[in-house]
Each structure stands twice: as C-alpha cells, then as structure tokens.
Design a protein around this nucleic acid. Structure first.
Length: 280
DNA sequence: CACACAACCTGTCAGC
DNA sequence: TGCTGACAGGTTGTGT
C-alpha cells in the first residue's frame, strides 16, 4: 500500500500522538515480520521516550532517547491504527502494539507481513543495510534533473523500472511512477538513460508535484490504508492513469482531448498504466 | 554491475 | 456456495 505520501502521512500522524511521550507498554505478538524482530524488542522499547518521528524514503524513523531509532517499514499491507486505552482484543494481523503514557494505543497491523521493524543506534542509521544505498529524497534539494539523469545514465532498463529502483530515487512506488510519467508525457517503456536533458527537466517537477499533492490530500488509498489518527481516511486520490485500464486518456491539450485509451502493461512483473498516444 | 524473475504471505475478486 | 487463479501499494535474493 504505502508509497512516500502515505508513509509521510503516517509519520505525521504518529508524531502528533507519540512525540514527547513515554512508551508505557509495548507488546510484540510475533517473532518476525519480513525479518526477525531484534532480540528483546518489546523490552528494549518499553519505558523509552519518543523524541521525534520522521521519514526516509518509505521508512518511518522513530527517534528515541538514549540515541536509538526505531525503523519501521509498512511493506505492502502495513498500517498504523491509533486508538485509546483500554484497547480491545488484538486482531490476527496486529503484530506490535505501542501504548503511550497518556493512553494512546498504536497498533501495527500487517496482513502480508512484508513490513519490518528494527532498532538501531542513531549513529549507525545511515549505514543500516536497508538505508545505505537509498537514492535522494524526491522532495529534497538534492533531487534535480541533473541528479536524476546522472543516476539513469547507462541504464537500458525501462524508465518505469528505473524509477521504482530506490537507489535512483527513494520513495516512489508503483502508483506514483505511473502517475508521474503520465504527467510528464514520458512512456514507461522508454529506455531509462534517454530520460535526460529536457525530459528529465520535465519529469522532476512532475514527480515532486504528484507526491506533494498526494501528501496534502492526506495520502491515498485503494482499500486498506488507515490514517494514523485512527479515522478511516479512505481518500480516493484522483489517479489519472493508475488502475484505469480502458478509460479514455484524461489529457486535454487546450480544448482538444487526447484520443488515446489507458493501457495496462506488465513490466518487471508489475502493472504499468499509461497512454501510448501521448506518452512518448 | 545490470537486469529479470522468484520469493516472501495473505486477502480479495472475477469467473466457473 | 465453493473452488481456482490472478492480482495487490514493496523489497530482497538468486541466477544469467
């Protein structure tokens, strides 16, 4: 589920509930998610104070006292559900439950268990195997047309696959890659290295815009995203192409609509949606 | 090194 | 109402 905008929304929501709070109780209901949880995980978290909560790529970073960081990835189906103590019986896919000293209950639910958590010393965060080779933040200052084309240079893989590679740019997922390429009028099948110069100049602002719009809309969801404040915030983001196979292309050049139809193709085993008429 | 593909695990939906 | 197969927002590991 979660791409950068959803993770950003979750991080902001968790910050509201957890920053400055002490973790009065942490319950761990499984040994492992995608990876084994650290030794004595719940025990090491209990009693700690949450200093701040941020995001890097699709990871939530919970900075704790004593110089440690709780690293969280939501995988495909993970969500954070906020409620109030006393919480009811945990569900089958509720894997880790955090209770703050002021009575908030944050439940990590993840049916597919592609998510992960780790507890790492702050000074070794950058070197963490999952973070070390991440590319630039698409909303950060380091992400520019030059930076993007430098990372695409020499790649003969399709631009769609390249943009999903977190080493190229960190945080894009399957939905927003399709959406950004549509906005930029670039075909997902185009050889990555040819996205340079004017094409890269065009693509970068579209990537920023689509992510920024999704964040301001509170993250988007197809079905199971739960806003971190616990309200079921099923926001139907206005996707132009994603999951819209067979619909008319929404692009209008002035008064003239594009006559194309949205296609679904499979690249590297994943669906891509685009208009072959106006994306080149 | 670059790339394609399978694997991880569960739920949902379309079709029979 | 089953049952089966395809597919789902991500990432890692393996093989070529």
């Amino acid at each position: 589920m979660p791409e950068l905008p959803e993770v950003e929304t979750v991080a902001r929501g968790l910050a509201l509930k957890m920053e400055g709070r002490r973790l009065a109780r942490v319950t761990q209901r499984r040994d492992r998610l995608r990876f084994p949880l650290p030794e004595r995980f719940a025990e090491r978290l209990t009693g700690r104070t949450v200093q701040s909560i941020g995001r890097r790529a699709k990871y939530v970073l919970v900075r704790l006292d004593q110089g440690e960081v709780l690293l969280i990835h939501l995988g495909m189906s993970g969500s954070m559900v906020v409620s109030r103590a006393p919480a009811g019986e945990p569900g089958k896919h509720d894997h880790v439950i955090f209770e703050t000293d002021d009575g908030s209950v944050v439940t990590f639910n993840d049916a597919r268990r592609f998510g992960m958590m780790d507890l790492v010393p702050e000074d070794r965060l950058q070197a963490h195997p999952l973070l070390a080779s991440l590319g630039p933040e698409p909303l950060g200052n380091e992400f520019s047309a030059e930076a993007l084309s430098a990372r695409l240079a020499g790649k003969i893989t399709p631009i769609k696959a390249a943009l999903l590679d977190q080493r190229v740019v960190a945080g894009l997922g399957n939905i927003y890659v399709s959406e950004a390429l549509f906005r930029a009028g670039i075909s997902p099948t185009r050889t990555a290295a040819t996205v340079a110069g004017a094409r890269a100049e065009r693509l970068v602002p579209h990537i920023r815009d689509v992510l920024t719009e999704a964040i301001s809309a509170g993250g988007s969801s197809l079905r199971d995203y739960v806003q971190s404040d616990g309200e079921l915030g099923y926001f139907q983001h206005a996707f132009k192409v994603y999951d819209r196979e067979g619909h008319p292309c929404p692009r209008a050049d002035g008064a003239k609509p594009c006559a194309g139809t949205i296609q679904r193709i499979v690249q590297a085993g994943r669906s891509t949606f685009y208009c072959s008429r106006c994306q080149r």
